[in-house]
C-alpha cells in the first residue's frame, strides 16, 4: 500500500506529513485523499483507511480546517477590496 509515483514537483526523498495525525512519513506509507485549500494533494497514513473512526473524523476535520482557511482568505480579499475602494487587490 503505497504511493509509487508522484508529480514531478513533489520531492519524494523527504518525509511528508500526514494531514490526519500530523506524523511525518515516507511516501511509501501514505495514501492520497482530498486536496487542500490551495488545490494541492493531501496525503494521509495508509493505516487510517483501516479504522472507520479515524478515516471519517480525520478527513472531516481536515475538510473543516481547509474550509476555514478558504473562508479566511475570502474575508481577507473582501477587506482588501474595501481598502482599495472597490478595486481588487491581488
Amino acid at each position: 500500500m503505497a504511493i509509487t509515483i508522484t508529480p514531478t514537483h513533489i520531492r519524494t526523498e523527504e518525509l511528508l506529513t500526514c494531514v490526519i495525525c500530523g506524523r511525518e512519513r515516507p511516501l511509501a506509507d501514505l495514501t492520497a485523499g482530498l486536496t487542500d485549500a490551495t488545490g494541492r494533494q493531501a496525503l494521509a497514513c495508509a493505516g487510517h483507511t483501516w479504522d472507520a473512526h479515524e478515516l471519517i473524523t480525520g478527513w472531516a476535520k481536515f475538510a473543516i480546517t481547509q474550509r476555514q482557511a478558504l473562508a479566511q482568505a475570502a474575508a481577507q480579499m473582501e477587506y482588501r477590496e474595501d481598502i482599495g475602494h472597490g478595486q481588487r487587490v491581488f
Partner: peptide, 30 residues
C-alpha cells in the same frame, strides 16, 4: 509527470470492494 500512482494489495473480491470504498471516501470530491 503530473499524476500520482498508488499501489494497493489485492486479496479477494470482498476485500477489494471494501478497500475501494474506504479509499473512495477520501476521493469522492475529486
Amino acid at each position: 509527470g503530473s499524476v500520482f500512482f498508488e499501489r494497493r494489495p489485492l486479496t479477494g473480491r470482498d476485500v477489494l470492494s471494501w478497500d475501494i470504498a474506504r479509499h473512495l471516501y477520501g476521493r469522492q470530491l475529486q
